[in-house]
Write a protein that binds this DNA or RNA. Structure first.
Lengths: 159, 159
DNA sequence: TAATTATTTGTAACTGGTTACGTAAATATT
DNA sequence: AATATTTACGTAACCAGTTACAAATAATTA
């Protein structure tokens, strides 16, 4: 029983962060061991561009609900390693249309093999937690409706 | 329904990260709005040093199950703002004994007021998720027993 | 049409973690 | 007692997000 568990509700946010970090770093180990020359957070970009063929930074950041500078950073790394190609939109020169490169398309079958293994692992980890996905969704919904900051302001009791 | 939810198990790790980030940044907003001049991740250090009076970097990193360089970074910031004082252990000059400063002790009542509000918020967020804490604990236990990397290696199906 | 506003993308500076490596002190071994 | 190993702490370089600001283009409004 570790300290974060001992302190109950006070430790929940940090436990979620700790778990998130553990999963991220362990996934990175896996990618490295498997000889994949990609970062874990490229996964979703691959999936999105596989599905939509061509997207802009703004569209990706909306799909993933992540800030656009975060997406820019990921995309730049992927471009540097030739996983993504860009062209400027003909009708709106501000927009950069992003597409998977040939290199990416060639690698996708192998990548999917590993992503499938990840899915199996995830299933394994929550197979005895039948409510986890649903309750996580509820959690996401609640913080989307009113965030932690706003809720806590209302919960402060002035001394 | 966003993309991460659409893709089911494949999106779980990223959803946990996204939630973790959202909670972290929103908590930082709260601290800022409340005029507290501290970072969210100092919380656990305060609680630990309140409980144990004096701890070393190594002990803190073990209690929190976090790398020691991460703890060093946090502690250095807290020292820079005079929340923590250090003295060298008389019996082992490698060890730095960390203690809360007078400034910290004076601020603790006010800090606890806000931390209590955070606890209320957390309760609010999971009040309709009666299994969340328990299933999270199970999740933590499973990845501690065998991490995501090791599990996924076993789940790969060679083509 | 000219001026204002909004959108898209990029950059800088910040927080928050990790692993890998180095140094000094303590402990164990020979 | 001298040498080797372990422990404690610190630093550097990396990944992954955020907010705030800036510049260029597009869209709207006066």
């Amino acid at each position: 029983m570790d300290f974060l568990q001992q302190i109950g509700y006070a430790g929940l946010n940090s436990r979620i962060k700790r778990l998130s970090d553990e999963l991220l770093y362990s996934t990175r180990d896996y990618y490295k061991n498997a000889g994949l020359n990609i970062e874990p957070n490229w996964h979703l970009i691959f999936l999105l561009l596989e599905k939509h063929n061509s997207l802009t930074i703004t569209e990706i950041s909306q799909e993933l609900r992540m800030s656009h500078p975060a997406c820019v950073k990921i995309i730049n790394k992927m471009k540097k390693k030739n996983y993504i190609e860009t062209k400027t939109d003909k009708n709106d020169s501000r927009k950069q249309l992003l597409e998977l490169s040939e290199k990416s398309k060639n690698k996708l079958p192998n990548l999917h093999k590993h992503w499938d293994a990840c899915i199996e692992t995830t299933k394994e980890l929550i197979e005895n937690s039948p409510n986890f996905m649903q309750e996580l969704t509820e959690f996401e919904k609640l913080v989307a409706d009113k965030n932690y900051n706003e809720r806590t302001i209302e919960n402060v009791k002035e001394l």
